[in-house]
Write a protein that binds this DNA or RNA. Structure first.
Lengths: 238, 238
DNA sequence: ATGTGGTATTTTGTATACAGTATTATTTTT
DNA sequence: AAAAATAATACTGTATACAAAATACCACAT
């Protein structure tokens, strides 16, 4: 019962279940709920000041998205990302990001291309300032423009969902020495290839970017594995 | 109010929402509900003999899966697959099926390989007998063994979801003259390549198979477009 | 000390009730 | 007669109540 969720305010037109869903997703991504932790409906509903109904509907969505696991008549638990899961996600993402980059090279508009270059600078600045939150934010924006430019909304949704699923762990690789600089260089090549409307080079750049990201993440995870393993196994049991 | 859903019977351990979800999904795939048709919660709940709660939760899931579209405070409508949608789905599937075939070539077990060859024969027999239902069933089994053999459950889920989304329309291309024979030959090459554990050839075979399937579907759809267009636009309005 | 059984509590699963909004029909006004 | 306003209706969104199942706890026996 560690996580304290903020109260929900209904300022928007969105249904409550959407707000609740985003709220819980954020909490999981930000580590407010530990992997393996049990999520209880009444408790969360009370904390957010809503009833169980929207909470239940939100949980169904999070289950589809892979953030939580439901065991019938038992309850809901925060998903526990294993090395295996990371591997599975990256296998798919290497494929889909490559596809998206190729499509973007064919279909991107001039305005989007400018936007992409602007965001490249933004990520760069954030790296200079060593402002991790800003790096993450700009990086998400950067990639999303790319996915939009692929002109395939399904593709965009699937990739963004996969990205979010590993967000919890991605911080680990971001803090790995030298990774950010490499990232920036890989992004630069990618934008360059897309700007040249070169499909093959864009695909190649995307593939390399993802493969490097995966490799770093795997290394980073195995290095801090000792302490992590203990915590996870405890978390899973409790 | 055209579609009549059967009553739900709770013989299984599964939660009601799952049964309801599968029920509605089947109805959409089998054309009981026309594309664009409005789905009303109370009505469906009554028809199936359950309350609104599990129906609502089922609809949320179907929304995530892409079978229905929800407009807040307006209602739920059966998704209307456009040429554009088909194109989007196949773009992704060409990528993912290629990936899956490559992984399967590396990871498939001898037992699965046997199973694959058995199913290849089963599909072949169904084609000989011109038994469409059996073809569809065997084809689904065949591909699912392949996806399982990729040893990536996420990948399997994503592909199967994409497959289901276009099931409504796939019948069209299956009935296209000569397509089934071609399919069988493409399947045969795919199994052959996987049996030889040849990653590149397997990927190539999968890509060709999907590209052909898409091409045929597009042709078949454009040919029967005249009557279809009218029905769709009516369905969307009503 | 340990294991088994039963009861109490907690939590999920489902049903229903109520409130608010969108749509449709009706009426009134120009 | 047409358009606008208003009332009626029907549906979704949310809350709550009730039932069934699972877990936790405690007593008792071995």
């Amino acid at each position: 019962m560690s996580g304290h969720l903020e109260q929900i305010r209904l300022d928007s037109y969105k249904p409550l279940r959407e707000l609740v869903c985003e709220h819980i997703r954020e909490a999981i991504i930000n580590g407010v709920f530990a992997p393996g932790e049990r999520l209880m409906e009444i408790q969360m509903a009370d904390e957010m000041g809503v009833s169980r109904t929207p909470v239940r509907e939100a949980i169904r969505k999070l289950e589809m998205e892979g953030f939580v696991v439901m065991i019938p008549r038992r309850g809901t638990y925060v998903s526990n990302m294993s090395i295996r899961d990371i591997n599975d996600v990256y296998e798919i993402r290497i494929s889909l990001d490559t596809l998206a980059a190729g499509l973007a090279a064919e279909r991107i508009s001039d305005e989007e291309l400018e936007e992409l270059q602007r965001l490249l600078v933004k990520v760069g600045n954030a790296i200079e300032e060593n402002d991790m939150a800003k790096v993450v934010e700009a990086d998400i924006e950067f990639h999303d423009v790319l996915y939009k430019a692929s002109r395939n909304e399904r593709l965009r949704n699937i990739i963004n969902n996969l990205r979010e699923q590993i967000t919890v762990i991605r911080g680990v690789s971001m803090r790995y020495p030298g990774r950010l600089k490499d990232t920036q260089e890989e992004h630069r090549r990618l934008v360059e290839s897309i700007a040249a409307r070169n499909v093959e080079k864009s695909q190649e750049a995307a593939r390399i970017h993802l493969e490097n990201a995966e490799r770093t993440l795997m290394i980073a995870m195995s290095e801090r594995k000792g302490g992590e393993e203990l915590r996870n196994s405890l978390g899973a049991k409790k």
